[in-house]
Design a protein around this nucleic acid. Structure first.
Lengths: 233, 233
DNA sequence: ACCTGAACACCGTTCAAGT
DNA sequence: ACCTGAACACCGTTCAAGT
């Protein structure tokens, strides 16, 4: 592995005084620029012009640092206006999360798997903010607390899944993509993968924003319908 | 970190001859038992009674090993019968993937983020098998190739998202859970998290299987409806 | 030709020694 | 009391030296 130059270009390599915010922000920049693996205490220390050990004053561990990075990314979410129908508000929230995730694709793996097995109550407040926000919208729209929770789960489940899907289909170099795809698909045996092999043209065009919008629309319509039914019963 | 005993209990620590299958299976056992971080070349070599370097004969790298582990887990998927309605077949596939993921929760993070930015055509055939299978069901049910791909994406998106959600709510010790949850929620400020704080009782009971079934039902109904509409137009 | 294991270039984190 | 950096206990992987 090749070592990068001492500091990220355009960044003061030696800010006057360190605090958690500065450290976490530098960590995010490292991850954005060079991937999750590049985030090591040593490299981060180097990019801040400090002894790596100095970082432990502002983050308990590498894991804690990653949790901070996730929180920082979620802070970039713009709050959607409250004047629309609840379905429209949720739809906008979905697009907003998608937008932020596409800005920080390297963070997404920790964003979606990060809090695994961390009890909900103990998660950083930054990651609970979106949950509270959605609950507010739904309860404000007349849902019971229990129903709001159901809608939240289905909504966020679909949203996370879509983002993972989209990132998987996102290729660094779109020019290379077509050739690579065709080559890759041809490698597959026609007997075992007849349908997949025939899908090359369709796989080429993927409109993540549209796909997300469609899916959310279907889901919200179905959820609204189901809840209306159960209310009428 | 404490070192485990030389071999996993009940496992022959020194199989006669190594091959990829044996190596990958041992890797899966290590991950199941002790988590992803426990999968190191050195520990795996130790659990097989071999020099760690011997593993490189059967796996190109640790990453390759993890890809093999994911493939192995997906091989545990039982193929669903082909005699039901396509929606029912997809529903069963969803439950089947959920079942296997819950058997190997430690593998799920690599399962869902593993192929990130690996072009679809270059992924291991084991991970493409479920995709081909779903396409077969949908095209067999009369969908066009393009529509089948849309349904697949929405379906798998939701499915992955649900599984991640469920694993996040799954707590190791359910007895401790309630106390921890209440404690955690009380930590939150009432001003910032009024709705979340009031949801403690609802958060306690989570039926992942039912939740998945509901979500899949809504999604499939919506997808079927949408596609019927577009066919009629 | 194959296999082994020493060695390299890293890790996160602890903790004793300095100020 | 605070900060530093040497040291510990690991990593994945390369490659020269053995058989």
């Amino acid at each position: 592995m090749v070592m990068e130059s001492t500091a990220a270009p355009g960044n003061d390599p030696r800010p006057g005084r360190l605090n958690r915010r500065i450290v976490v922000r530098a960590a995010l920049e490292l991850v954005d620029a060079h991937g999750l693996e590049a985030l090591t205490m040593r490299r981060l220390g180097q990019s801040l012009g400090r002894d790596p050990m100095a970082l432990y004053r502002h983050a308990a561990s590498r894991k804690d640092l990653l949790a901070g990075v996730v929180e920082l990314v979620l802070e970039e979410l713009e709050v959607v206006a409250e004047d629309a129908h609840w379905q429209e508000q949720l739809r906008r929230m979905a697009h907003e999360l998608r937008r932020v995730c596409l800005l920080h694709p390297n963070v997404v793996p920790v964003l979606v798997t990060g809090p695994l097995s961390t009890p909900l109550g103990l998660r950083p407040t930054g990651t609970l903010k979106p949950l509270e926000q959605i609950l507010a919208v739904l309860i404000g729209a007349g849902f019971s607390a229990a129903d709001a929770l159901h809608v939240y789960r289905a909504f966020y489940g679909f949203l996370y899944g879509h983002i993972l899907n989209e990132l998987q289909e996102l290729i660094a170099d779109p020019d290379e993509n077509e050739a690579l795809l065709r080559l890759g698909l041809q490698r597959l045996s026609l007997r075992e993968f007849p349908h997949l092999r025939s899908l090359a043209p369709e796989l080429m065009e993927y409109d993540g924003e549209h796909e997300l919008d469609q899916g959310i629309g279907i889901l919200l319509a179905g959820l609204g319908q189901q809840l209306a039914d159960s209310a009428a019963r």
